[in-house]
Amino acid sequence: MKIQKIINHLAVITTFAAAGSALAAKPGDRLSFISCPIVRDTASVPCWLTEYDGELYYMGIQTDVSAPWQPPYLGHKVLVEATVSDKPRICGGIVLEPINSTVMPELDDSCNTMLPAEDKYQIDFNPRPPGPSSGRLAFDRPPPNAPAEPAELPDHQTFEITFDFDRSISFRHPGVMMRIVNYAQAVNAQTIEVTGRRGATLLSTGETITEGAAIAQRRAEEVASLLRGVGLKANVSMKWSDTPMDADGVEDWKNRSVTVVVSK
């Protein structure tokens, strides 16, 4: 695992060098950058693009709330942390996959590009049309946990909650929070430890961006407050670190996080 990280890190450095010489990124390259999102209409659903270092990248299409990737906002820049895919271009852009993107909090009026539909850009893998669905979500959700006897559950379980850049609890989190609550109730948890972290991201330019100083505390406090508020009997403790996590350009988004350890 560690070796793989080093390799990936080298890939970032390579990418950085390539970016400096304005060469297009290659499949497998990792890219981390902040740019304006662009929405392009199509005959079906719109697709989301972004430009970086003179190249157009494809981020994804509009689907529904079940999608593993959520589109960004016009009016804001987007932080993209992704890998360049070898798939054919979509909507004119090089495909980034997998991709993590997060809306940067401050408004930016310069991010306002909407492109009209053109016949040459077609979405033929649309899991959800722009109107009514066929009666199911665009992406299958994992099947609900089968009810299990408390005896079959482990004595403790760790949950990772990740966040948008400089943001805390949001629409992304009811699912994971309910998993924590369900487990805690099932094992009659006695202790819950909440650890908040402050993230940082190494951009492909070599610059590192860091979240606000108080974000780790805010995340820990909000998660702890929610777990207390929902009525769990367990003792909820929390800690956080204002020191930003190390950023290496490889899945740095995972460091914008809270870890919750629930124990019997």
Partner: peptide, 10 residues
């Protein structure tokens, strides 16, 4: 809430 801004919907 995860759909993006803007969305083309009804």
């Amino acid at each position: 809430v995860g759909l993006g801004n803007p969305i083309k919907r009804t």
